[in-house]
């Protein structure tokens, strides 16, 4: 696969949220405002890129048997770095995201990419894969949070979109809005896939199966 494809596959074709249905907890929890969605997306991208590169770098030295604990330690380290840096330089964002910053550790996208990609690909490819998947995650968060913020608050990045008379549909900002938005978005993506089934779309079932296998491996190793 070319470098460009390695980077862009995560954007839509193998989007971690809409296609693989990974990393759902933060996807729902931090998407009431676009600002929070972007912050979360970039934080996760940073961790994903760093852990992918480091794991690819040491992939030949890591014994198979204890790779999962090592991956977890590596990921957790980068998460704590993000936690500290965010607290120091972006305290309001750090407060808004709350416990979902430490919870990046258990975001299945990151461990999933380490297991499925970084541990048997070169550093360069792992970097591109991490960046692409991370940006794909960010794109998903921005799409969901835009819908929720525009309809639920009537604003985008804090700036009013509609005139004075707009009555925001608060339900979209509240917890149910998160479930409903992502439910219908997943439905939309499934509908698009169904329509294009005979064309060039990747086989989602195969990807999901691959994900199942990944979970299985994680389970055994844990």
């Amino acid at each position: 696969m070319s470098a460009f494809k390695e980077l862009t596959k995560g954007f839509f074709k193998e989007n971690p949220v809409f296609v693989l249905a990974l990393g759902l907890c933060p996807t729902l929890a931090v998407t009431s405002l676009v600002e929070k969605g972007i912050g979360m997306g970039l934080a996760a991208t940073f961790v994903l890129v760093c852990s992918n590169v480091l794991i690819a770098l040491i992939r030949k030295m890591v014994p198979k048997k204890i790779r999962i604990p090592i991956f977890i330690v590596i990921i957790a380290t980068f998460v704590v770095i993000v936690e500290l840096v965010m607290k120091a330089y972006l305290p309001p964002l750090s407060e808004a995201l709350g416990i979902f910053i430490p919870l990046i550790v258990v975001n299945c996208i990151i461990l999933g990419r380490a297991e499925a990609f970084a541990q048997n690909h070169s550093v360069g490819k792992s970097f591109l894969d991490g960046l692409g998947m991370g940006l794909g995650f960010t794109i998903a968060l921005v799409i969901i949070s835009s819908i929720r913020e525009i309809i639920g608050f009537g604003t985008f990045l804090g700036l009013p979109v509609f005139g004075e008379g707009y009555q925001p549909a608060t339900i979209l900002i509240l917890q149910p809005g998160a479930f409903l938005t992502i439910g219908f978005l997943l439905g939309f993506f499934a509908w698009r896939r169904n329509r294009k089934k005979n064309k060039t779309m990747p086989d989602v079932e195969a990807l999901r199966a691959q994900r199942e296998k990944m979970t299985q491996v994680t389970r055994e190793a844990a």
Partner: peptide, 20 residues
């Protein structure tokens, strides 16, 4: 191996902690 990885990571973290 596990010990070395953890030690290296902890050292790197302490650095960031001191800085921030």
């Amino acid at each position: 191996t596990l010990f070395i990885v953890t030690a290296v990571m902890a050292a790197a973290l302490s650095g960031v902690y001191v800085l921030t």
